[in-house]
């Protein structure tokens, strides 16, 4: 296993979908079998986890409609979650990805699960990192959108003072760029929030049984945004699934405990099945 953080060469693609009403922008890196990565609510940020995956796969990381720089109003082209799922399925076809590994984090985890449930033939390996999408009265999912910005780090990270957390939250030094980055993140919350507000439950619980892919459910032990108890709900509803709890981590295990996260993900992707048979 490597923890070399050097970013690979990343190229960008633009694919027209949804009868020309949307242009999806995708960051692509690496070589090998295809892997589709769906980013969390704050937008796509290329991180060491993606660089690591790109060492073994060709990573395709699309930007959610409305979150691409210079194209904020693309969000108005999709009305509801079924629209989004169809857009992503169309994107997968237009990219020519066959049986790509599907990886999603948080909001992207919900989206990945929706895709795999709606189109069971789309993938046979699914990795969900602290996904949203379910709701329990006894462990409500925190409202990241209405949390004051200064409290977000403590919601996201077990140790918000850690270097990994601070690196992820770092803003550009140039004030104009920092403002653009902040506005972009706020808007990304707004775009993804269209499909998660006010309660991040659009009925995924009813659909999880349709997933046929082998599924790895990864959860930060100290996730305060989506409590780890949800891991067992996903596990109970997805037939061929396994749960890995990552110690010393909050909502973003691939950042806060990179070694442990890539160890379980790598092992799953090597073996190809969640449950040994």
């Amino acid at each position: 296993m490597t923890t070399d953080l050097a970013a690979p060469v990343i190229s960008e693609e633009a694919i027209s979908v949804w009868d020309g009403r949307l242009t999806m922008r995708i960051k692509v890196a690496g070589a090998g079998a295809p892997l589709l990565y769906l980013h969390p609510a704050a937008g796509l940020r290329w991180d060491p986890f993606l660089s690591h995956l790109a060492e073994s796969f060709t990573v395709y990381a699309p930007e959610f409609p409305g979150t691409s720089v210079g194209d904020p109003y693309a969000i108005h082209a999709v009305d509801d979650l079924p629209d989004v799922v169809l857009v992503y399925e169309e994107l997968v076809r237009k990219l020519g990805l066959h049986n790509a590994v599907l990886v999603g984090q948080s909001f992207g985890g919900m989206l990945a699960a929706e895709l795999a449930a709606t189109f069971p033939g789309l993938t046979d390996r699914l990795v969900l990192l602290d996904p949203i999408g379910l709701w329990r009265e006894d462990a409500p999912v925190a409202s990241w959108m209405s949390t004051p910005p200064e409290q977000l780090p403590a919601l996201l990270f077990h140790d918000p003072t850690s270097e990994a957390a601070r690196t992820l939250l770092a803003m550009p030094e140039d004030p104009e760029m920092a403002r653009a980055a902040t506005a972009g993140m706020v808007w990304a919350f707004g775009c993804t929030g269209k499909f998660a507000w006010p309660i991040p439950d659009r009925g995924l619980r009813k659909r999880l049984h349709r997933i046929t892919a082998s599924t790895l459910i990864v959860w930060g032990e100290h996730d305060r945004l989506v409590p780890p108890t949800y891991a067992q709900d996903f596990h109970a509803l997805v037939a061929d699934s396994r749960v890995e709890i990552i110690a010393g981590s909050g909502h973003v295990p691939q950042v806060e405990n990179f070694p442990a996260t890539v160890r379980v993900v790598d092992e799953f992707l090597r073996r190809g099945r969640a449950v040994t048979r």
């Binding site: 904020p72 959108m145 209405s146 403002r179 653009a180 902040t182 506005a183 972009g184 706020v186 808007w187 990304a188 919350f189 707004g190 775009c191 929030g193 269209k194």
Partner: peptide, 12 residues
């Protein structure tokens, strides 16, 4: 000011 309620250029 909830995310998405103010236009992205307005936020900036």
């Amino acid at each position: 000011g909830l995310p998405g309620g103010i236009d992205i250029r307005g936020v900036q």
